[in-house]
Design a protein around this nucleic acid. Structure first.
Lengths: 246, 246
DNA sequence: GTGCGACGTTGATCCACGTCAACCACTACA
DNA sequence: TGTAGTGGTTGACGTGGATCAACGTCGCAC
């Protein structure tokens, strides 16, 4: 396996024989030697069927997970039953970081489709990242990236109106698909309108209406969960110079 | 210096001679030896006057900061001028984690009052945490805690109504003051109504009205920025069983 | 003191989004 | 092919919080 060669974002090549760990090691250009050692990291793989939990809030935290295939949502439940989706994760991303601070998971992670993850025992990660040059930093970057992403969502929830939120969401999805080597203009959403709404702080009807309006305006083509972006610049334009809401 | 003795949350004892690093090392019970080495971490101290920036979005990331005295807000600005406060930080907390993933800071950090921070050069932190048993894990916990906190804010912004948000905010502030050895029932807010509103996704008028209503209902006593919590249980009750908004 | 500017409160009005409700599209399965 | 269930769309209406506006209060400079 060619590990020292920087891997383009055009395809999903694997960083170690077990799993796609490019988020953890590739952007940093670890040496071939080091990459081989990453195999030590991956305990097992685990398959998760659609709608099943990878972990639940309250579960003992023992490992983080690298998504090998499929996609997930994470959510938190209030006592009164309200659900807030805190994020969507797709192939190549890392889940489970929330558990480190409390030794228990603080949210639920649920597969949006039949998926497979690599289990990375946290103790092993800690041990290895003391030894493998660059791994520690790479892991810090993964965590920091989650913090930055969350700030983006807070921005969205705190100061954008419905159409801006959905535009931001679509552009973000498009970007993440692109980064994984898929077409950026056309993709399949794996989550329902209700889940999108929960993530964006909107009701499903509002999400649906915004989709329809975008379609009327020629910005996107929607067919159920299938989205085609026709005018990305138009979507970006929605994100600025709008009267403040919220 | 007594470093091996677990430090109660009742006072602000220092973990190393330079700075309050209990977030980084104390809860994990580092050995006295190790704690002394933490002095190596702290490059310099820096004083920041009220309203001045500790760093700005776009600044090169070189260090994280432990707040030694005072308090800060972090915010992000949209192109059109809208501001979103992404968090408030008080004495003993760590700021600057957002910069790790991008090598540049992604938000602004501004002092809410005259403050002082310990500068922790990131490169030094990385180096030391490979050597000092427990420090790495402690740093992971700090980052994870920020992720969990952010999820809480997302929850708040995404599915709570105005009064719930403010109640959650007050309880959170109270808790953080308690953890720093101050009275939990009485404290001085360092931020304006507008900043609270920006953080909570509300307008300043809405924040003000909610404060007034809480006061009318005997939940709190408000005098400008001075808050006294009269009925914490009542505030907690507001957080559940409310009709879903948002 | 007086004046000024930042911050806070309160009222009146408006509107974006929630709520309620009906209907439609797609899939699964008998 | 019918039927049921889940998810999505659309319309009518209500409301929480934004907006606009006036006024009050505190702290500071002089």
């Amino acid at each position: 396996m060619k590990a020292t060669v920087p891997i383009s974002s055009a395809g999903l090549k694997t960083a170690c024989s077990q799993c796609n760990l490019q988020e953890l090691c590739l952007p940093f250009g670890l040496s071939e030697n080091d990459i081989d050692r990453l195999d030590e990291l991956v305990g097992t793989r685990r398959k998760i069927k659609r709608q099943q939990h990878l972990y639940r809030a309250g579960d003992l935290f023992e490992a983080i997970y690298a998504i090998r295939a499929g996609s997930f949502k994470t959510d938190v439940l209030l006592e009164d039953g309200r659900e807030q989706v805190t994020g969507f994760q797709m192939t190549g991303e890392i889940i489970g970081l929330d558990g480190i601070s409390t030794e228990f998971h603080t949210c639920n992670s649920i597969a949006l489709e039949d998926s497979e993850v690599c289990v990375i025992p946290y103790a092993k990660l800690e041990e290895l990242s003391r030894k493998v040059e660059g791994l520690q930093h790479q892991f810090h970057k993964v965590m920091s990236r989650e913090i930055v992403r969350d700030h983006g969502v807070m921005m969205l929830l705190g100061s954008m109106r419905a159409e801006e939120r959905l535009a931001a969401f679509l552009l973000n999805m498009s970007q993440r698909f692109t980064a994984r080597g898929f077409s950026s203009a056309e993709f399949h959403l794996r989550m329902t309108r209700e889940e999108i709404g929960s993530y964006l702080g909107l009701k499903l009807e509002t999400v649906s209406r915004a989709f329809s309006r975008f379609q009327d305006e020629g910005l996107i083509a929607v067919q159920q969960k299938h989205i085609r972006i026709l005018d990305g610049a138009g979507l970006k334009r929605l994100l600025q110079h709008q009267p403040a809401g919220g």
